[in-house]
Amino acid sequence: MNNLKLIILFLALSILFSCASNQNKSYVSSDSISVSEFSSSVELLVSDTNFLEDEILKINAKNPSVQRILVNSDAYLKEGKLIQANSELERALRITKKEGAIYLRLAHLRYIQGLLDESKSFASRALLIKEISSWERLLLNVYLKRPI
């Protein structure tokens, strides 16, 4: 439990740092929410898979062609067609490997497939991408920290 608190504290602090240093790129910089409200959202991300999934599917790709594929993938995911969702995500990766939105979905897909190590690895891999937003970074960290 102490670990979980430490994780939440770290995530909250890291997002605040990121927002402060990178206001233009951040998705959350425009929302003025209190720290307590924010940390409860972070706690939900860690503990509630459905809430996390909703947040993941809100992350759009910058590239419109990739976004079009992600829409297909999201639809498959909602229908429970995980193999098809994965095929679409791999298709998107062949177009570009610079979109955090793809890796986030892969990390989530593997998580719900029960492949937790792979989920973490996808999240770690995405953290090497230069152009990911602070919010994407935070969400990726959730997969690195999710309890098994």
Partner: peptide, 29 residues
């Protein structure tokens, strides 16, 4: 540092065009 097993096949579809078996991208740091 991310290991991914090499794979030659992407997926296998049946006559109807449904995926019979897929060989997904695996990754392990």
């Amino acid at each position: 540092g991310f290991y991914s097993p090499l794979r030659s096949i992407r997926d296998i579809k049946d006559l109807k065009g449904d995926i019979d078996l897929s060989y997904p991208y695996k990754i392990e740091q």
